[in-house]
């Protein structure tokens, strides 16, 4: 941690106060939520840390079939939340339970995990698959960004000076929607080689809408729109599912990983997407990959 120039730490108790301090501090002030990423991310020199732990932003609330999660909510609370368990087949809760260790989960916050993603992060992949909205408070007021926009670049570049992520809103899911999340890692404590989240709505075998998102291929999760286009609005069958998984594997951008080749990751992507679609779209009894 390089904090030699640190002169001041503030503990705002309201969002408005936090935003004001951040805006006044400009690039010399930095918001600090759980603070865990400081160990892994090179820290620019800051003069002021704005500690967010006293903001009233720790909650998981159900609202009209959707979910509102405060940015300062520890992921341990998300992992234990019955409301999160009821949303989207419990994927959020399942994913939150897998982040770090019990000790880490008490420190890592939902907002921190989204604003400072790493190649191993799980929540950004799920947030993108569910088209979550990010509520951002800044000196010029409040704005809401869809996950697609929020993860179009590193979120810290998307946030303007003085802006703060305050809440993540997971929208209500359509009727007949199905969801799945799978990841592949060699051991329980290993970072995933690749992870896939799929959300779709269907009428019989007809796929009305879908989102296919792959994480851990690059730092930011990728929505595979060409693959989605193969199935959207069409009555699914094995040929289409195979085609969609082929297209997904082809369009995926892959960052170098010393653990395996790029081809291996493409094969993983193809297999994950196909397996999930066979299960939740074609209703085949495809065994789930063991989720470590």
């Amino acid at each position: 941690m390089r904090l030699a120039e640190l002169e001041k730490v503030t503990y705002p108790e309201t969002v408005a106060e936090a935003v004001r301090i951040l805006a006044e501090g400009k690039d010399r002030a930095m918001a600090l939520s759980g603070g865990v990423s400081f160990v892994f991310a090179p820290l620019k020199s800051v003069e002021q840390l704005v500690c967010l732990s006293r903001l009233p932003l720790s909650y998981v609330r159900e609202e009209k079939g959707g979910l509102r999660i405060g940015a300062v909510t520890p992921v341990a609370d998300l992992a234990a939340s019955p409301a999160a368990g009821r949303y989207g087949g419990g994927i959020l809760r399942q994913v939150a339970r897998r982040i770090g260790s019990t000790l880490n989960r008490n420190l890592i916050t939902v907002g921190g995990n989204l604003v400072q993603p790493f190649i191993w992060s799980d929540l950004p992949t799920v947030a993108l698959a569910f088209s979550a909205s990010m509520v951002i408070q800044g000196p010029k007021g409040r704005r809401t960004l869809k996950a697609e926009k929020f993860f179009s670049r590193m979120p810290k570049q998307v946030l303007k000076e003085g802006e703060l992520l305050t809440e993540v809103v997971f929208p209500p899911l359509e009727k007949n929607s199905r969801t799945a999340f799978e990841q592949f890692s060699l051991t329980e404590v290993d970072f995933a080689y690749l992870k896939t989240a799929v959300r779709l709505s269907r009428s019989g075998k007809k796929c009305l809408d879908l989102a296919i998102v792959i994480g851990s291929a690059t730092i930011l999760p990728q929505r595979l729109e060409e693959a989605e286009g193969v199935l959207r609005g069409r009555t699914a069958n094995q040929v289409l599912v195979n085609e969609a998984s082929e297209v997904a594997a082809e369009e995926l951008k892959i960052k170098r990983d010393i653990r395996c080749s790029e081809d291996y990751k493409r094969d993983l992507a193809r297999a994950q997407v196909r397996g999930i679609l066979e299960r939740i779209l074609l209703d085949q009894k495809v065994p789930e990959w063991k989720l470590f």
């Binding site: 904090l3 640190l6 730490v9 603070g35 400081f38 840390l49 732990s53």
Partner: peptide
């Protein structure tokens, strides 16, 4: 929590 991940000032 892991105290090695907590900045003392926070």
């Amino acid at each position: 929590v892991n105290s090695c991940l907590v900045l003392a000032v926070t």
